[in-house]
């Protein structure tokens, strides 16, 4: 634990490259954000517009799923291949999601009275 990290000055080219890279990345994040806002609008809109519930329910669930994947992979950087042990983390997260899904399934199907 705690071995000192090398303090290394970046070359000017590298520094500028990284600055630029970060800025481009940030721009992408803003676009992702715009998509999320749009998806949210859409979800509220179809409910307000009073379409058939058989359409709305699967549709807004799909929108929610897309939005969550966006959050996880862009805002939370689960797509970052250089993230420390990100593969293990992905395994854990999706395993949790699968378990969570079984909870919903059983609570909606075999709890009744």
């Amino acid at each position: 634990m705690g071995h000192d990290t090398q303090v290394q000055a970046k070359t000017k080219a590298q520094f500028e490259y990284e600055r630029h890279h970060n800025a481009v990345h940030m721009r992408k994040q803003v676009i992702n954000f715009a998509i999320m806002i749009f998806l949210t609008f859409l979800a509220f809109a179809v409910v307000v517009a009073d379409f058939s519930a058989y359409f709305i329910k699967p549709f807004i669930l799909l929108l929610a799923a897309v939005q969550v994947v966006l959050q996880l992979y862009s805002f939370m950087h689960m797509d970052d291949k250089k993230g420390h042990h990100i593969g293990v983390i992905q395994t854990f997260v999706w395993f949790g999601a699968v378990i969570a899904f079984t909870f919903f399934l059983t609570f909606l199907t075999i709890i009744w009275w």
């Binding site: 997260v93 395993f95 919903f104 609570f107």
Partner: peptide
């Protein structure tokens, strides 16, 4: 830690639905 929160919320959520 967030993974543990997934099943925490899933449990409360599933209960809410039923």
């Amino acid at each position: 830690f967030i993974c543990s929160d997934i099943t925490l919320f899933a449990s409360v959520f599933a209960t809410y639905l039923s």
